[in-house]
Amino acid sequence: MTSRTDCRPDTTDAVTVTAVRTRRDWSTFAKVPFTVYRDDPNWIPGDIADVGSMLRRPSEKTRSRMTSQAFLAYRGRRLVGRIAAIADLVFISHYEQQTAYFGYFECLDDREAAHALLDAVADWARGRSLSAVVGPMSPSLLWSAGVLVHGNDIPPLVGMPHNPPYYADLLESWGMTSIKEFHSFYHDDPHTLVQSPPFARKYAMGQRWKARSSVVVRPMNPATFDEDVAKLRVLYNTAFASFWGFTPVEPDELDALVATMRPILDPEIVLFAELDGEVVGFVMGIPDVNRAALGAVRSRFGIVRDLHTIARWRGPGGRRHRTHVRLDMMFVDPSCPDKGTSALLIFELFQRIHDRGYDSIEAAPVLADGGWFRSVRASYPVDPSRTYRIFSREIG
């Protein structure tokens, strides 16, 4: 793990922050993580949401939803950090809150440099009449959000952030405060877990409910993949309408997110619940490709990393990497009359994970003040395996 001493640069030189404008600047922006994580054995190169398509060369549709500016920090001539200021125009319109996001934040353990980067975001935000800074959002809640504040010493979960343990200190020292926390919960063989004494009553109730329910649970069909994704988007926008930070997801946004996952998806653990032919619920298990990516080359060329990871994932011996599953995106239409639909999805997913030979599962992100968290703690009072935190500061 990277130590605080390793990450502290010589502070005799002054800190300067420059806006990212040129092709060379963007190349430098991509190099920052390789400096920050050079001694971290758990780091996996690559941003969850691609810098090129989100910040550098956004599509016309992306530009209609979001505007941004990236910055680099130097101490003297040494590169020490980066950040992106983001105005999510959909969020601002949806909530009528004049909020700027910061994201893609990476920095050495250097308070002055971190503060200078955050100051640049604040100045950019004020110039657009925005009065608060929230993050990290890279670039939004749909993709990657939060600072990892517990669980930094283990390999990251697929699709979730990873960072040095001092990041929260850097943000708090700038005056930011926590506004939301998310957790992840790990367990070996979840099918066995739900049959254990703490869950025995709920499992029995679930089996009785399944016997009389009209809900049909089915896996994703590769032959109708695009149709299933379109149904998923409609259900997502309905089910998450009251979720903290929610903004309606457009077809191209979900298509881009799904495209990053499709090469590793196991359709048998991507489940839809249907009632009278209509999709009313969804849960997704994502095989944790990070088990393979952790041993792949740390090339600065993404295509090289991806090809090596896929070779380790699908090649001879790849099965030993496909043992862990992330449980993500579990939701049910609030108007669904069958109130046991979520339980049916979970029990079916756990059974399939067991039958397909996966060894463990990790549910993430679980909102700390949400109903899911309270339900988990009531039935199974285990400590979270990881905790992620989103910060905010008024700048008006």
Results as ranks from 00 to 15, higher is better:
residue 321 H to L: 10
residue 110 D to L: 07
residue 113 A to K: 06
residue 240 F to Q: 06
residue 8 R to T: 15
residue 248 P to I: 04
residue 217 V to A: 06
residue 224 T to V: 00
residue 339 K to A: 06
residue 109 D to W: 12
residue 232 L to Y: 15
residue 119 D to T: 13
residue 355 D to F: 01
residue 21 R to M: 03
residue 279 V to H: 01
residue 151 G to L: 00
residue 347 F to C: 00
residue 72 L to A: 05
residue 134 V to H: 01
residue 99 T to I: 07
residue 2 T to F: 01
residue 86 I to N: 02
residue 46 G to A: 09
residue 315 G to K: 02
residue 240 F to T: 01
residue 132 A to R: 10
residue 299 S to V: 05
residue 184 S to C: 05
residue 344 L to E: 03
residue 153 D to C: 00
residue 328 D to Y: 09
residue 92 I to H: 02
residue 322 R to H: 06
residue 179 I to Q: 12
residue 337 P to W: 02
residue 305 R to I: 09
residue 353 I to G: 03
residue 394 E to Q: 12
residue 97 Q to L: 15
residue 23 R to E: 14
residue 68 S to K: 11
residue 373 F to R: 15
residue 221 N to P: 09
residue 84 A to W: 07
residue 78 R to Y: 06
residue 172 E to M: 11
residue 48 I to P: 04
residue 33 P to K: 04
residue 13 D to V: 12
residue 109 D to M: 08
residue 55 L to C: 05
residue 36 V to M: 07
residue 101 Y to P: 03
residue 291 R to I: 06
residue 69 Q to C: 10
residue 374 R to H: 14
residue 134 V to Y: 00
residue 101 Y to C: 06
residue 223 A to Q: 14
residue 282 F to T: 10
residue 176 M to G: 09
residue 287 P to V: 02
residue 245 G to R: 04
residue 77 R to A: 13
residue 106 E to N: 13
residue 245 G to V: 04
residue 233 R to S: 01
residue 205 M to I: 09
residue 325 V to R: 10
residue 256 A to M: 13
residue 301 F to I: 15
residue 374 R to L: 11
residue 33 P to M: 04
residue 364 A to R: 07
residue 33 P to A: 04
residue 216 V to E: 13
residue 85 A to H: 01
residue 26 W to F: 12
residue 44 I to E: 14
residue 247 T to R: 00
residue 230 A to P: 14
residue 165 P to E: 15
residue 231 K to I: 07
residue 80 V to P: 09
residue 98 Q to P: 00
residue 389 R to V: 11
residue 309 T to V: 11
residue 91 F to H: 15
residue 224 T to F: 13
residue 345 L to I: 03
residue 188 D to K: 11
residue 361 I to R: 03
residue 331 F to E: 01
residue 226 D to F: 12
residue 196 S to V: 04
residue 108 L to W: 05
residue 336 C to D: 02
residue 81 G to T: 12
residue 184 S to E: 04
residue 395 I to W: 09
residue 174 W to V: 08
residue 288 D to A: 05
residue 189 D to Y: 03
residue 338 D to L: 03
residue 151 G to N: 08
residue 15 V to K: 11
residue 284 M to D: 01
residue 139 P to C: 03
residue 6 D to R: 12
residue 352 R to M: 04
residue 247 T to V: 14
residue 364 A to C: 09
residue 109 D to H: 14
residue 154 I to S: 14
residue 205 M to W: 00
residue 204 A to F: 00
residue 166 Y to R: 02
residue 266 D to W: 00
residue 142 L to E: 15
residue 56 R to G: 02
residue 63 R to Y: 12
residue 220 M to W: 10
residue 361 I to L: 14
residue 300 R to W: 04
residue 141 L to H: 07
residue 169 D to G: 00
residue 21 R to T: 07
residue 55 L to M: 09
residue 174 W to D: 14
residue 108 L to N: 06
residue 32 V to A: 05
residue 37 Y to C: 06
residue 175 G to T: 08
residue 328 D to C: 07
